[in-house]
Design a protein around this nucleic acid. Structure first.
Lengths: 199, 199
DNA sequence: CTCTCATCTTTACAGCGTCTAGTTTAACAT
DNA sequence: ATGTTAAACTAGACGCTGTAAAGATGAGAG
């Protein structure tokens, strides 16, 4: 219905998301504002209200865009890897960390836990987020599937790998890491413990 | 020199930090503002400027206060544990996670990476942060010391344990975790791989 | 052609961080 | 005891923010 240049601007929603990602990556979360996004898109400061339920909705749309890129990084790494379960898992972790380093502001923003009450967002933004975040997580989940963690179930492998790669990305992606009192941060591949394949 | 009830308020700096922690824990990072802290402390909106170089400084002071509590949680857990290296390390991880669950807003706030340029802060706040964050990390570091990680060095054990417990705390502390598509989050103790003691 | 309605603009308001100028008062020097 | 100094605090202003309300614009349907 409103797909092709609906009125004045012609896909303002998309332009606002792109502007938001740009502001976020250039100046961090403090530089992100609805009014600046509107200015970059060339519309008045109140125009975004017709596409997002508020700043929170725009933020969630930016997070969704982040998940899209995030999944791309992991999938690219997986495709370039040796095709064994262990190598695929290692490659996906590398993609995870590579993304966090290449787009640290966005990565940090994506995993800053929010109040995720669906009624705070417009439906389109919410649905898009559900799809994007589930898809990016599924990449990691699939890579864990071949491994066995005994009677405790697959969730243990997923939780272990995800915890480790996520903690590593959060703590050691920004360098020099003021958080980490390390001279040299070890490679992630040296941290991942051995895993046993299913039966 | 200005230790005992210096003037009007009588330790406004401390009152502002306490107000800030309270606002943060009650309403999240969005509810934290200099003006509200000043109002809670019963002073004018411009009074905090005489104790903090800006909002960033107050935030850093709140983070420091968080590290103090954080270290307490880990030390308490360690003291209550069976006195073996493995049990102590496990207990400290439990303390880490217990803190993240009991004070999630504060925990999240502490590890939200900031621009840590010392010249952005007043000296007192900066020094206090250095001491508090180093001390809380040292608790984890000490618990890792007895374990061997081969030629790669102690940093590998520290990085591995810290990544895992931190990722776990970030991803699974808020429940129900909208981030984690898990029905049941595994206990952290089932995730930590075996470690070998030094020689 | 006219109606409708989504899109966008304009205006306004309250809250924010921070700057400046002025006031209060504790503590020190004489 | 008195005067001085400087730290602690107040009052007001500025530009920025998100958001709400009301008016203007123009594309598409009947």
């Amino acid at each position: 219905m409103t797909n092709k240049r609906p009125h004045h601007h012609g896909n303002l929603r998309e332009a606002l998301i792109i502007a938001g990602v740009q502001l976020l990556e250039e100046g961090g979360v403090e530089a992100l504002s609805l009014r600046k996004c509107a200015a970059i898109a060339g519309v008045s400061h109140a125009a975004p209200a017709h596409h997002f339920a508020g700043l929170g909705s725009l933020e969630l749309a930016i997070v969704s865009r982040g998940h899209d890129k995030f999944a791309e990084y992991m999938i690219d790494a997986r495709e370039s890897a040796e095709q064994t379960p262990r190598a695929r898992l290692g490659a996906i972790c590398d993609g995870y960390i590579k993304f966090s380093r290449a787009h640290f502001a966005l990565f940090k923003f994506m995993f800053q836990p929010r109040e995720l009450e669906p009624d705070l967002f417009d439906e389109a933004t919410w649905n898009q987020f559900q799809v994007a975040s589930t898809a990016s997580y599924q990449v990691l989940r699939d890579a864990c599937e071949p491994f066995d963690h005994g009677k405790a179930g697959d969730q243990v492998t997923e939780a272990m790998v995800w915890s480790m790669v996520h903690g590593y990305a959060m703590l050691f992606s920004k360098k020099p890491s003021k958080l980490a009192p390390f001279e040299l941060v070890p490679e992630f591949s040296t941290l991942l413990p051995p895993l046993t394949l299913k039966k």
